[in-house]
Write a protein that binds this DNA or RNA. Structure first.
Length: 810
RNA sequence: GGGCGAGUGGCGGAAUUGGUAUACGCGACAGACUUAAAAUCUGUUGGCUGAAUAAGCCUUGAGGGUUCGAGUCCCUCCUCGCCCACCA
């Protein structure tokens, strides 16, 4: 008997699949298409660990299951290859990022192949390849042409370690998302994409997506739409006016002071001579604070009076104007009317500086601040409900031209320029005469030149600025001397359209052909971690909508359903990380002899796919033992000399039960219970073998063949071997998924649970076609039941057909 | 502070959506094989009382409710995880 040796069979089948192009996909419209996608990884030098593998294992199981079910499955893989790690490594070692990426891609690909994933490698893409980024640049020009890309000098997040600016989404709690250093603000001319123009659609279209509520709400929160009003306040004794944004115009009568952000442009104009010193001191100290300090919500609020007063437009009251850094310069108008009776923050501030507090809403809830209710102390508006007054006052203000309804968003335009080398060059030329000139399409790609020094200048310019041959060019418009833009694009630009390139990866005429995009897109199953919730997933949706508007695609949402897999934590409960030294790598487990199949099985069996779990060191032994049991059973059957020609309905029943359970569970992505069902089937087959031996050849054949097929999406290597050993030709993965027949599941006798007052007393076996009377009488005749009933009066008998009887007594 | 989610054996987790709670696996214990160990196989394994593989009681974070019947539905509370957070 052959031993189960994954080290031997796994590489064999991996080669077989490559040689036979088993997983190559084409536009075959005779079958329903299914596009299964995992986010294309950044090929870092580090080995992948079992946490990463879970993501790919889930995608692979979905892909294989659907292929066997007769779907035409696209399951591609590629590399999100631009990015800082390779560049930082280049600074340290002098090895070019191109080389680093080449090496680590080879390594990463080898690891993926070692796991036996069914990617169509003929579609492999690499975002740092000029054939790819040519089209990223093309999309930049498309955005530019549509007025969605613009350059503006402004104060931006700056990472002092990575020496580049960052988008808002890439600043986490005042730290750089990549290197975790504390970010600063720096004024630089930068390129932006106008994602704010799509804010409404990005919210509205979430509605119809099959995504988790938590990701949807993260996106909604990030976009942060709020409806309110802008209200103009005259500044006493000057010609100036101060505009504030508020979501509660109904509390306008309760505004007892105003607060400006320290950076607000009016501050200098309105500050009185006496207060000037204090104000300047405060502004300086606010600037000196780090962003983390400023964002700390527990911090005590501070502020300074400007000496100036504003006039409340509704009642002509003079109210003092303060500055305070709890008001953000970047949101709304950078100025607020403070209503300390009904806003917690204003309340805290008013109490500290002894400012007036006027109640204008009689709240109908417990909390003193916030909340809605009946309006008081507000002149003619008294006795209205908050929501009624909001509408009325906005109308009245609009009539007198002192305010208007406004919608505000938290989301900012997407800052996409990076002062780094290893990215797609922004295809723009600066000409003294013609200003900003886009590179003509025929001149694309703007190729990233090979350079010697990767050190960023640190003065806000990328290393490309030092490469004269790159910088100096001619203006496409006037032919005169001009210079190239030296910033490169945010890597997230490259990943905002990669899912389209997979549909048509080798097209040299277009980013993708209409037909192929139409055939494959949108993505049916997008599997990935929640870390992309407000970056990639928002950007990709935005780009897709732009393409839709341009008529390039016929859908406006790229990812129909999104599956967020749960994280695999280290056995110690922490996130796996190289620095903690607690990573578990599949390579190591394979070396120990477990094999990719056991690892894959464990990834899915360990718990629900979308829940975080700790990796269990010992668990892998269990899935390996299971595969070995399957292997041994298969071998014993093949080698057996006593294969009879009897029949055994038990084998057929157990097999059909498993087909039903595994098919349903796979369709619902209940991988852990699907694996459990396969273990149960195997256990049952062992029991039958022990009782009767291999007496029913045809039935055993059917059972073992089916077991191989049902197991195939999870353990692709061993199942090929089982399949061949049973005498089948071709790959099990191209075989047809089995279908169960209910007629084999019904049995002659059924088990009825008997309860007395809801407590389990007995199980009785009755024939399946028994009437209620027959079941009741056989239940009563059970010894234990009779004892419990003890001649008591049965008040009620609950009978659930084929399942349960409950006698209610006393 | 806001949003999303979760609490079931020693552990990871099941439970046909209101109908036998603890499937499946890990671990542990006992036995077989072995000079021995590993591997493998067989059995036991929620808790308490009991000599018992007799019988009974208890058990799904806590407490209440609805129901013939609640892990599942409703109310009150507690704990934990993740994400966002001075967004006016």
């Amino acid at each position: 008997m052959r031993r189960y040796n994954p080290k031997e069979i796994e590489p064999f089948w991996q080669k077989f699949w490559q040689d036979n192009k088993t997983y190559h996909t084409s536009e075959d419209s005779t079958k329903p298409k299914r596009y299964v996608l995992e986010y294309f990884p950044y090929p870092s030098g580090a080995a992948m660990h079992v946490g990463h593998v879970r993501n790919y294992t889930i995608g692979d199981a979905i892909s294989r299951f659907n292929r066997m079910r007769g779907h035409n499955v696209l399951h591609p893989m590629g590399w999100d290859a631009f990015g800082l790690p390779a560049e930082n490594y280049a600074i340290k070692t002098g090895i070019s990022p191109k080389q680093t990426i080449k090496d680590s891609t080879t390594k990463f690909k080898k690891q993926l192949m070692q796991m036996g994933f069914d990617y169509d490698w003929s579609r492999e893409i690499n975002s740092s390849d000029p054939d790819y980024y040519k089209w990223t640049q093309w999309f930049f020009l498309l955005l530019y042409r549509r007025g969605l890309a613009y350059r503006k000098e402004s104060l931006q997040w700056w990472c002092p370690v990575d020496k580049t600016v960052l988008a808002n989404e890439q600043v986490e709690n005042g730290h750089c998302w990549r290197c975790d250093s504390i970010v600063e603000k720096k004024a630089l001319p930068q390129w932006f994409f106008k994602i704010t123009e799509y804010a409404d659609r990005l919210i509205e279209d979430l509605e119809d997506l099959d995504w988790s509520d938590s990701i949807k709400s993260m996106q909604r929160n990030w976009i942060g739409k709020s409806k309110g009003a802008e209200v103009d306040f005259k500044i006493d004794g000057t010609g100036e006016k101060l505009t504030v944004f508020t979501t509660r115009p109904d509390t306008l009568f309760g505004a007892t002071f105003m607060v400006l952000a320290p950076e607000h442009e009016l501050v200098k104009k309105i500050t009185t001579a006496e207060e000037k010193d204090e104000i300047e001191k405060y502004i300086k100290s606010a600037q000196a604070k780090s962003e983390i300090e400023r964002q700390d919500t527990n911090r005590e609020k501070t502020g300074v009076f400007t000496g100036a007063y504003a006039i409340n437009p509704v009642n002509d009251t003079k109210i003092p104007i303060w500055i305070a850094d709890y008001v953000l310069a970047g949101y709304g108008t950078g100025a607020i009317m403070a209503v300390p009776a009904h806003d917690e923050r204003d309340n805290e501030f008013a109490k500290k500086y002894d400012l007036e507090i006027i109640e204008v809403v009689k709240t109908d809830e417990k909390s003193e601040i916030h909340s809605e209710g009946v309006i008081i102390n507000s002149g003619k508006y008294n006795d209205l409900r908050s929501e009624q007054m909001r509408e009325k006052i906005v109308n009245d203000l609009a009539k007198s031209k002192q305010g208007k309804e406004v919608i505000n968003y938290k989301i900012r335009d997407w800052l996409i320029s990076r002062q780094r080398y290893w990215g797609a060059p922004i295809p723009i030329i600066h000409c003294d005469k013609d200003g900003i000139v886009p590179v003509p399409e025929k001149d694309l790609p703007v190729v990233l030149p090979e350079i010697k020094s990767y050190e960023p200048s640190g003065d806000g310019r990328s290393p490309l600025a030092n490469v004269e041959e790159f910088v100096n060019t001619t203006c496409p418009k006037c032919g005169g001397k001009a210079t190239r833009e030296t910033d490169t694009m945010d890597g997230f630009a490259c990943s905002s359209w990669y899912f389209l390139r997979f549909a048509d990866p080798h097209n040299s005429e277009k980013a993708f052909s209409d037909d192929k995009a139409k055939f494959w897109l949108p993505v049916d199953d997008y599997i990935g971690g929640a870390e992309h919730a407000v970056m990639h997933l928002l950007y990709a949706r935005f780009w897709t909508k732009v393409m839709f508007d341009e008529g390039l695609v016929d859908f406006s949402e790229p990812f129909k359903s999104l599956r967020n897999q749960g994280m695999i934590l280290a056995p110690d409960g922490n996130k796996m990380s190289k620095s903690k030294g607690n990573t578990i790598e599949p390579g190591g487990l394979i070396d120990q002899g477990y094999g990719a199949d056991s690892i894959r099985l464990m990834e899915l069996f360990i718990g629900p796919w979308n829940q975080a779990v700790n990796w269990s060191i010992d668990g892998i032994g269990g899935t390996f033992r299971f595969l070995q049991r399957v292997w041994v059973l298969n071998q014993e059957f093949i080698d057996s000399e006593e294969k009879g020609d009897g029949s055994d309905p038990e084998i057929i029943r157990a097999t059909h039960k498993a087909i039903k359970k595994v098919s349903e569970d796979l369709a619902d992505m209940q991988f852990n219970t699907a694996v459990a069902a396969l273990m149960e089937l195997t256990n049952e087959l062992y029991k039958i073998k022990a009782d009767k031996g291999f007496v029913a050849k045809a039935e055993w054949d059917f059972a073992l063949m089916t077991l191989a097929q049902l197991l195939a999406p999870f353990a692709p290597h061993i199942t090929e071997e089982l399949w061949q050993d049973l005498g089948h030709k071709g790959s099990v993965h191209l075989s047809e998924w089995p279908v169960h027949d209910d007629k084999y599941l019904v049995s002659d006798t059924i088990n009825i649970v008997v309860q007395v007052n809801g407590k389990l007393k007995a199980n009785v076996k009755v024939s399946a076609d028994s009437s209620e009377e027959e079941v009741v009488s056989s239940a009563k005749s059970d010894g234990k039941v009779a004892q419990s009933l003890d001649n008591k009066e049965i008040k009620k008998t609950i009978y659930i057909k084929g399942r349960l009887i409950n006698f209610v007594v006393e």
